[in-house]
Amino acid sequence: MNLTLKVWRQSGPSDSGRMVKYRVEEVSPDMSFLEMLDVLNERLILEGDDPIAFDHDCREGICGMCGMVINGVAHGEQVATTTCQLHMRHFEDGATITIEPWRAAPFPVVKDLVVDRSAFDRIIQAGGFVSVPAGSAPDAHSLPVRKEDADSAFDAATCIGCGACVAACPNGSASLFTAAKITHLSLLPQGQPERLSRAKAMVDQMDAEGFGGCTNTGECTAVCPKGIPLDTIAQMNSDYLKANAK
């Protein structure tokens, strides 16, 4: 496959950045998107150019490090797929592919396609934990959890914190991420004592970071590589309203 890439290049946080066009030739359809970028980067290094910086770690879709907006869609158009698990066979030979970093004020660009997602860490620090000695995993039947709650909590817990929800949201809202973390804990017995204070602290931190507000467009859940459901946001809103009513 031969491709034309239009990639966002930005040498550092203070650089204004620009789109740069590259030709990539002899791409195997079996390559992942990141491997295709590796091929381009090897060539750029040999030519003495600066390679394109992008985040990546496990390359098996579970760490949440990778992520870029591919042809206007966070992680590309393949549903429930991280960028590292996106394969080149989903693209046409000769296609032009636009690659941009997550765009959000709370996610400043570090370099090229790498953004600083520390804002997510601070949201977690605000309340995404349980203040009980959790110890080792308890026996499965020692603490009864309704099947529906266990399933919903697990769905929410699969969030890998990649930030695609923020990137896709027309409001630049981090509601799906924050809601996933809140729902994960608020449905389980261990999360009950701090349920309302957690929701309040995390939502307030999310707002303080400068993320936008949720207008229920559903763009987040549509691009989420883990398919975090939209009703986590309703759960978050419910807990947050109750916390404020107290």
Partner: peptide, 29 residues
């Protein structure tokens, strides 16, 4: 205020942006 927060949260626009959640109604609010 939602609209202002949205603009502040995304100062640099995407060169290409494609909606994945259908819904004409949602986008013309």
């Amino acid at each position: 205020s939602l609209s202002r927060r949205a603009h502040a949260a995304r100062p640099v626009k995407y060169a290409a942006k494609k909606s994945q959640a259908g819904g004409y109604a949602t986008h013309i609010m």
